[in-house]
Simulated scan of single mutants.
Amino acid sequence: MSNRYWFYADRGQQQGPFPEAQFRDFIARGMVRADTLVWTEGMAGWQSAGEIPGFFSPAARSPSTPGRMPAMANGDGGALSIDFEILEFVGRFLLFIFGVIFVLPLPWILVSNLKWLTSRTRVPGRPDLGFTGEPMGILLYYLGGVVAIIVLHIIGGRSTNFLSFLIEIALGWAALRWFFANLSSGGQPLGLSFSGSYWMYLGWNLLGALATLTIIGWAWVYTAQTRWVYRNVDGTHREIVFKASGLEYLWRAVVCIVASAFIIPIPWVARWMMGWLASQTVLVERGAYAEA
């Protein structure tokens, strides 16, 4: 039995992914017919299930009707999604605060939280998303950065503050490279890498810092920076697109800030915001997406 995962189109909506054993059960129950469009990783486009060898008898097969991946009801056939229980989030958040306070446990807590968060993320065509990074992979960089920042703050002065900023940006850039390199699907490495340069990443962060002076401009810088990050992810057959606008991000951020002032709603607004950010990240055929 193949270990592939399958998608099928039902009334214009993409369903899946489903393991092949379950997919064959759908065929036996009549949920997937010979003329149903289906797709799995490695296929150039969607095809009728009857054209896939081994699913239907020759008499039941319909003429080939290859097509593009159908869009979901919201128009984003390749949109990511994320969901988690509120109590899970609260526990993870408190664990992160513990790591920040005591410093040394933070790499282990960050890795644990990343493994948890990726397991709650759904990516079309990539079943069982996971994170395989380990704390030792970043421990030396983390400790070196912490020590350098502490020393610079002890020395003091404006120039040392700027050097501290450069180190923090370097750690963030290295973390991006480490994160994408350790993503997996179905227990297998995805083979992704982040090729964006440190200097471009630094430039985006400097622009973001300057944009805060305008009060609202940072939202547009954030969306543009996110698009730049996705454009520089190598190793994926599909293009990763962040389609949100600066205005859409801004008003949601304002809602989160206001709601968080009351403390108790924080987990709910965090899930709402993270779910929206995931839904704005879509996987499309390369060259098929044009920004409005």
Rank of each mutant, 00 (worst) to 15 (best):
R4W: 07
R4F: 09
W6E: 02
W6F: 05
W6Q: 06
R11D: 07
Q13M: 04
Q14E: 11
F18I: 12
F18C: 02
P19T: 03
E20L: 07
A21N: 11
Q22M: 08
F23D: 04
R24M: 10
R24Q: 12
V32T: 06
A34F: 06
D35L: 07
T40Q: 11
E41T: 07
M43Q: 09
M43H: 04
S48E: 13
E51R: 15
G54I: 01
F55C: 05
F55D: 00
F56Q: 03
A60E: 15
A60M: 10
A71C: 13
A73Q: 14
A73N: 12
N74E: 15
A79I: 03
L80K: 01
D83H: 06
I86L: 14
I86T: 15
F89E: 08
F93V: 06
F93T: 04
L94M: 14
F98V: 09
V100S: 07
V100Y: 03
I101K: 11
P105V: 04
L106I: 11
W108Q: 12
L110P: 00
L110D: 02
N113R: 14
W116R: 07
W116S: 05
T121H: 03
R122A: 13
R122E: 12
G125I: 05
D128N: 12
D128V: 05
G130L: 01
E134R: 12
Y142D: 10
G145H: 09
V146A: 11
H153D: 09
S159F: 09
T160D: 12
T160S: 15
F162W: 15
S164C: 13
A170I: 03
A170F: 14
W173P: 00
L176M: 13
R177E: 12
F179I: 13
F180S: 00
S185I: 02
G187P: 01
S193T: 10
G196N: 10
W199N: 08
M200T: 03
G203T: 00
L206D: 05
L207G: 07
G208I: 02
A209N: 05
L210T: 04
A211T: 07
T214R: 06
I215G: 06
A219S: 15
A219V: 03
V221S: 00
V221G: 00
Y230L: 09
H237F: 14
H237E: 15
H237R: 15
E239F: 06
I240D: 02
G246Q: 08
E248D: 13
E248G: 08
L250R: 00
V255C: 08
C256T: 06
C256M: 13
V258S: 11
A259E: 04
S260V: 06
F262G: 07
I263L: 13
W268E: 06
V269T: 10
A270N: 03
A270F: 07
R271N: 09
R271M: 11
M273I: 11
M274S: 09
M274T: 05
G275H: 02
W276A: 12
S279R: 14
Q280V: 04
R286D: 05
Y289Q: 03
E291W: 10
E291R: 12
